[in-house]
Write a protein that binds this DNA or RNA. Structure first.
Lengths: 232, 232
DNA sequence: GCGAAGATTATTGCATGCAATTCGGCAACG
DNA sequence: CGTTGCCGAATTGCATGCAATAATCTTCGC
């Protein structure tokens, strides 16, 4: 459980709302009335909530219409794809650096998570798998040693997390995803940046192809040509 | 002059402060007392200012210490270099896409700016040159057609703008920069993404080498090995 | 019955007041 | 002489009240 070291109510509100939005407990497009939220979270007043909403708006998680209130940001399929393209690009930049500078300890840490991933798969714990998967990718990016890159990457992942994990993937895809992770881990140990980069690109494209249909369906099929001619 | 379409005082405060910080009118590390700022900008009250500060903090332009107020974010040399590495990476991703999809009209627009750049150089208008230079790079990134990428790129550029343009460059560097722009424009017209990417990387590295010394000096020489072994 | 203008209600935007916390200085003590 | 504890001033954090804007409902005219 992540401690709340900041007694600040603004921080508390922001953290709590962020978590609710990322996890998908608050649906995209849902209205976020100030007074309503205040009663929902500890009965705090509108001021810290307004500040928290402004912060989340800057992060792209909520959308504020002047004089009309805030809603959970609702992304279109193409916006999700833009962000995903960006994420893949950032991750690609990161891994090339990571392959150059990752330490043996770093590799060992990756291996721990990698094993956890396998365990989650073996035991069929889907949610834990997603969580571990996310942590692996983040750790890979962190290994590049560029804090700003890590921050941006984490932020963008948070924005579309709900969409990527909207529905449970099919088992066939899950199996392939694990295999891809195995290969990527191998590429990392051999410090082959360009190869790892290409594998990541394919990995994300494959993953998105599965999620995309579910998202498109949920949003009402904004179906352009299938992502095969893919951008990223 | 950019119009203030939003009557919202929070928006006004955020826009105004952002401008002041980016332009360097407010120095890094400078204290931003709420009441003081309020009197400075139109005599508005603390509430919209607090909200604006929170937003700018989320953008990375100001740093808020709980119960201790806000200051203009002061970056170390290595932080600036991290951000620059990120910017170069983003721009690299962008131009590869841009070379694929830029239209003739887009190329024409780039050419207009490119000519302006030459005029600024010829007339020795350094500030206009910087401005135009920045617009060229932003337009290049926009040409990739990924709004999220454009947003992030613009944000990161804003954060280090003050550092890059801290001092006036030497004329020799200026001349070379123009030459590099000529070559890059050529690469763009020929839609050679990989080449353009490499040229951008070198262009930024060369530019930073000049600015770096001035920044390091200003910040008190946090002098690690010279950037020659460059990361980006 | 339908559309439009006006009134009503609810919500946001902002100013202000009070409590909580931090920082500066001063004095007492080791 | 340096350190520690305390007090006061100033600043931030937050709650609340009021004004302004937008949404909703009512009513009137056609």
């Amino acid at each position: 459980m992540p401690e709340n070291h900041h007694g600040s109510r603004t921080q508390l509100a922001a953290d709590r709302l962020r978590q609710l939005i990322i996890a998908g407990d608050l649906r995209p497009g849902q209205r976020l009335s100030e007074r309503e939220l205040g009663e929902y979270v500890h009965g705090l007043s509108r001021t810290p909530l307004r500040e928290a909403l402004k912060v989340l708006a800057a992060e792209g998680l909520v959308t504020i219409s002047p004089n009309r209130g805030a809603t959970v940001t609702a992304l279109s399929v193409s916006e999700v794809e833009d962000i995903l393209e960006l994420i893949v690009g950032l991750e690609g930049l990161a891994v090339e650096r990571a392959c150059q500078r990752i330490s043996d300890a770093g590799l060992a840490a990756m291996e721990v998570l990698h094993r956890q991933l396998h365990e989650c798969f073996r035991d069929g714990r889907l949610m834990d798998y997603f969580e571990t998967n996310q942590r692996i990718h983040q750790m890979l990016v962190d290994a590049a040693g560029n804090r700003e890159l890590s921050r941006l990457y984490a932020g963008e992942c948070a924005r579309i997390r709900r969409y990527r994990y909207a529905g449970n993937r099919q088992h066939a895809r899950w199996e392939r995803a694990i295999a891809e992770h195995d290969q990527m881990f191998l590429a990392l140990t051999e410090r082959d940046g360009p190869l790892l980069r290409e594998m990541l690109r394919a990995h994300h494209r494959n993953g998105w192809r599965t999620a995309r249909n579910l998202v498109a369906e949920e949003l009402g099929v904004e179906d352009t040509a299938d992502g095969e001619g893919g951008r990223y």
